[in-house]
């Protein structure tokens, strides 16, 4: 059903030149993408930047490519690439940056009197740190395995979308996931 709504919105963009339809797509996916980005990037601002850029890039891609049918997979694919680019250009000690940036950010927002509460911010910061550790551990896994495990377990995506993002068949993704889980249990 959600897929059908996406298709309808894409159809509107294609045939009616409807930018409002793209705004609807934004409404549908911005939160999920922000969450997707927030744990993988060192700061809230980085997550916001990457999320905004994801949609801009998706819009440009939609204008140039007429073969997009799965907008969700497209958005996640762009976000993944942007995150990879982010670390490619800033490969230095992420964890430290994360803590300082977010600490400052959180307190400044507290002063401004809006934004989420400090407890929530703290939790996210801890989660980022945990994520770094987990990712380190997952480095022993094959790249395919790691991608599928992250997209499935952390981001909670459907196998079909993961297949579209990684350009694999749904069945293949399923197989990779189950092998990866087996390997995970052997790691401990």
């Amino acid at each position: 059903m959600s897929n059908l709504i996406d298709r309808y919105l894409l159809f509107r963009i294609r045939t009616r030149r409807d930018s409002e339809a793209f705004a609807k797509i934004y409404d549908r996916y911005v939160k999920a993408l922000y969450r997707f980005n927030s744990l993988k990037l060192p700061s809230r601002e980085d997550a916001q930047d990457v999320t905004a850029e994801t949609f801009t890039k998706a819009w440009n891609y939609l204008r140039e490519h007429k073969d997009v049918t799965n907008i969700r997979a497209l958005l996640y694919r762009i976000a993944r690439n942007l995150i990879a680019d982010f670390y490619r250009h800033r490969p230095v000690s992420v964890a430290v940056d994360t803590v300082t940036n977010d600490g400052e950010f959180a307190s400044s927002r507290m002063r401004d009197g809006f934004g989420s509460d400090l407890g929530r911010e703290k939790e996210v910061m801890e989660a980022r740190a945990e994520m770094n550790i987990v990712l380190k551990q997952l480095e022993t896994l094959k790249e395919d395995y790691r991608d599928v495990v992250m997209l499935r377990l952390v981001d909670g995506l459907a196998f079909e979308d993961i297949g579209d993002i990684l350009e694999k068949s749904t069945g293949n993704v399923r197989v990779i996931f189950h092998r990866a889980i087996k390997t995970l249990k052997n790691l401990e």
């Binding site: 911005v30 934004g115 929530r120």
Partner: peptide, 8 residues
């Protein structure tokens, strides 16, 4: 944790 993250 990630699912509890809310964008501003």
């Amino acid at each position: 944790v990630g699912s509890r993250v809310e964008p501003d």
